[in-house]
């Protein structure tokens, strides 16, 4: 099956947040008791009950009072996913055949290492200490439906389809640079940006933390090979040099 992806175009987003509600509705997430803190943006952060939210980004502008951008924040479904890499519990995070990074609460052990592995600060933990995040509506897409957010988006700001087609679409509609085309093994949540990612509050070069890569490349194999080498060296010593026996001691004396 070809890899699927969301194409998010902040330039087409009108900030209506239908996607936030549709996401909650489909995933049966409960509402949070929020407060207006002087911004229209709410809830204030991703949470175990908020898989997707629109950030209201205000950028200085010469022509207007501000430039007001609406940017979705959610799991990016990395092709090379830091969360999956670091996760110690097999099956807690897994890749679906459509390429989404999904989770299984039954298998999650609540260690929160995925928070460290994620370059985008996405995973959240619920009251039972289980991971919660966008799954690209794996249950919907496996049945041939679009994710709830894409389905409800009235303006075409969130589109869903084959990843290659989404990249093509973005390029054809004048967004030469597709955020996430190549980074992190290619993101499953692509962004069509008109300007530098920083304008939208995103990292220019998102990456899995160096320490996690070092751990994965060196430390983890070292545990395996190190143990093996230590055992092998011991055996070698035993055969080649041999043990220190007390009899020899006696003989020496």
């Amino acid at each position: 099956m070809s890899r699927k992806a969301l194409l998010i175009s902040p330039e087409l987003c009108i900030g209506c947040r239908g996607c936030q509600t549709a996401c909650k509705s489909w995933n049966q997430l409960s509402a949070e008791k929020t407060q207006n803190k002087g911004t229209a943006e709410n809830p204030p952060d991703l949470s175990p009950n908020v898989y997707n939210r629109i950030r209201y980004v205000e950028v200085p502008s010469a022509a207007n009072p501000v430039r007001w951008l609406f940017v979705s924040q959610r799991c990016m479904h990395c092709g090379d996913a830091g969360c999956m890499k670091i996760c110690p519990a097999p099956g807690a995070l897994y890749r679906t055949k459509e390429g989404a990074v999904a989770f299984n609460k039954e298998k999650c052990i609540g260690c929160r290492l995925c928070i460290g592995g994620c370059p985008f600060n996405v995973p959240r933990y619920d009251a039972k200490d289980k991971i919660a995040k966008c799954t690209l509506c794996s249950d919907r897409i496996s049945a041939g439906l679009a994710p709830a957010c894409a389905k409800t988006c009235p303006s075409g700001a969130i589109r869903f389809g084959d990843r290659d087609a989404m990249i093509d679409l973005s390029k054809k509609t004048g967004y030469a640079k597709v955020y996430g085309e190549a980074d992190l093994g290619g993101l499953g949540t692509l962004f069509a940006f008109r300007d530098a990612p920083a304008v939208y509050g995103m990292e220019e070069k998102p990456a899995i933390p160096e320490s996690v890569i070092f751990w994965n490349r060196i430390l983890r194999p070292l545990a395996y090979w190190g143990l093996g080498a230590a055992v092998a060296a011991s055996l070698l010593h035993y055969v080649a040099v041999g043990p220190k026996r007390d009899e020899e001691v006696k003989k020496d004396e």
Binding site: R17, Q20, T21, K24, S25, S30, A31, E32, K33, T34, Q35, N36, A40, N42, P43
Partner: peptide, 8 residues
């Protein structure tokens, strides 16, 4: 509650 969450 969903709507109230967005604009409380």
């Amino acid at each position: 509650p969903y709507q109230l969450e967005l604009q409380p």
